Simulated assay, not measured.
Amino acid sequence: MKRDTRIIHAGRSKQYTGNVVNPPVVRASTIVFDTFAQLKHASLNRANRVAFYGRRGTNTHFALQQAICELEGGAGCALYPCGAAAISGALLAFLKSGDHLLMVDSTYEPSRSLADKVLAGLGIETTYYDPHIGAGIASLIKPNTKVIFLESPGSLTFEMQDIPAICAVAKRHNVVTILDNTWASPILCQPFTLGVDVSVQSATKYIVGHSDVMLGTASANEQHWPQLREHSYLLGYCASADDAYTALRGLRTLAVRLRQHEQSSLTVAGWLTQRPEVETVLHPALASHPGHSLFKRDFTGSNGLFAFVLKQANQAQIEAFIEGMSHFKMGFSWGGYESLITATMDVQQLRTATAWPYSGPLIRLHIGLEDVDDLITDLAAAFSRL
């Protein structure tokens, strides 16, 4: 099956749907059994999508887990209450006191805070590395390095990483690679074919697609799935059946939504490149992006999230720019049907291993599903206010 067809059928095996189109919502804490033999069977097979206890999941959860594996790859998928929980759950599954973590310097800010404020307190050392390092990451690996964390593109500054090169080095040193694959969703990048061991998603974003559910996923290859599964379970991570159902429903329109997000974002990005106030547009799908060749090699498309840097603007000008929007809403997260705008005055404060090359403020946009001409009109008015 081709991708769009797989999205429609993924996770809809008859064992989960019965005779209806969508898997029913099955809410449960206690699972009861008629015989001791049934209880024993469930206990022995609780890791294989057999209902045993509510935290292990019900058929609603199993359907979503199967769907993510079918679309993204991987031997198994764990569910979490949000994307940040998926990141922490994946890291804590493979790190312990005395270990060393290599974290990309362009990482999502909560991932950096987790490393600096939580992992450090557990005796786990973190070294931040240049997202452009590629195979050169070999020089940073120590005897106690256990995990390399990647995020490509970075969700604020959009640097592309050479995922296969980093993963090849990691495999030679028996180091686990974890990729935050949220930007790509399960369909724009196939991380396991690139050598990644664990792929993390904030399903809150494009999988759910409607800005109304917090949910995370982490998928792993066959070698690392048992450890990820059991550690996440022991840490108490789980998600509600209602949220899993909502994610399954959002998943069905993922491909068609992403095509519109991509088309509109490229139109807006191209328009921004012509604005005299703009220093640069940070969109990996643009030929002008420094990581465009990696994007073309490893990704099958783009989405609605990108950023641009203004040549200059003070705090008052930025406030005038983003506070008077008609269609762009000011807020965090992304991946929903609505367009969003945020601003970062000083990117350098969010990194330690690399120098940010621009002095002007960064504006991040999520291009939603509104008419693109209305969005451009909104931005044109913002530049007038600026």
Results as ranks from 00 to 15, higher is better:
118 V>R: 07
143 P>H: 05
164 P>F: 10
344 T>D: 09
326 S>H: 13
386 L>I: 01
233 Y>K: 08
138 A>C: 01
130 D>G: 10
271 W>L: 07
113 S>V: 06
330 M>I: 14
359 S>Y: 03
126 T>M: 14
36 F>A: 08
299 F>D: 01
99 D>E: 03
137 I>M: 08
289 H>S: 10
385 R>W: 09
187 I>W: 09
60 T>V: 08
206 Y>H: 13
145 T>E: 00
158 F>G: 05
36 F>G: 03
286 L>H: 05
281 V>R: 00
175 V>R: 07
43 S>H: 12
327 H>D: 12
240 S>W: 01
321 F>T: 00
213 V>G: 03
173 H>C: 11
327 H>E: 14
189 C>L: 15
210 H>G: 02
111 S>E: 06
67 A>T: 10
320 A>G: 06
347 V>T: 11
48 N>P: 02
261 H>Y: 15
95 L>R: 11
379 L>C: 10
22 N>Y: 13
321 F>C: 05
282 L>E: 02
318 I>Q: 07
278 V>P: 13
182 T>E: 10
15 Q>R: 15
216 G>W: 03
305 L>K: 06
330 M>S: 11
208 V>W: 01
376 I>W: 09
32 V>M: 13
284 P>D: 06
16 Y>F: 15
128 Y>Q: 08
326 S>W: 01
267 T>E: 13
386 L>Y: 02
260 Q>D: 08
16 Y>M: 09
24 P>Q: 11
227 Q>T: 13
52 F>K: 01
365 L>R: 00
101 L>D: 02
318 I>P: 05
1 M>G: 15
45 N>S: 13
296 K>Q: 15
117 K>W: 01
124 I>W: 00
121 G>W: 00
129 Y>A: 01
55 R>A: 12
176 V>P: 01
107 T>N: 09
217 T>F: 13
355 A>P: 03
328 F>E: 09
204 T>H: 08
331 G>V: 08
352 T>H: 09
147 V>Y: 02
175 V>N: 02
341 I>T: 06
144 N>F: 00
